[in-house]
Amino acid sequence: MSVVAISDRGASAETQAGWRIPGNKGIWVGISCEFVEFLVLFVVYFVSRAHFPEAFAEGGEQLSRLAGTTITLLMVSSSYCIACSVATLRAGRRRASLAWLGAGLVLALGYPLTKYFEFQWNLAHGITGDSGIFFTVYYYLTLNHLVHAVWGILGMLWVLARHLGGAYTVDDYSGLEALASYWHATDIIWLVLFSFFYVLV
């Protein structure tokens, strides 16, 4: 596998020590804040689960694991497509990069769609935010994540429009990489939520 130096001019910020900052510093301020926000939400989860272990042991059995698994597969696949979009643009394959980004967007749109059907399924089975502590925490965390995912989807639309307009080149793709970093971070958070609510322990 060949290793070459990538120009730091506009591709991704590079510090004097030679470390990379994928995208730009601003997106990493945002990602750090996103991590802190979800760490606080995770504290809510852990404290609730410590107080009501039975409710959390039984709650997961009532959720739709099909929906949880579908969202997980959509998130990791979308994240993969966005990573490939960055990779192909670095290799100078702009059309392939656009195709990967488009595929990532289509897969990402499947998340709110699946969530809609999951909430319909929940309501049909009498699962609301008042159904118990497990479900209150479940709605609180997953809806919060959905909001962050929608921001990411809006970002994808913006980056796709700019990419179509020729804004990104092999020497300057920081906007695309900033979006990719945000989406990967949002993916990491979902992988945690999946284990919290859908994997029986």
């Binding site: 596998m1 060949s2 290793v3 130096a5 990538i6 030679g18 990379r20 192909t88 670095r90 290799a91």
Partner: peptide
């Protein structure tokens, strides 16, 4: 480290 892998196939 001042380089990243160029994304080839």
């Amino acid at each position: 480290m001042n380089g990243v892998e160029k994304k080839t196939p």
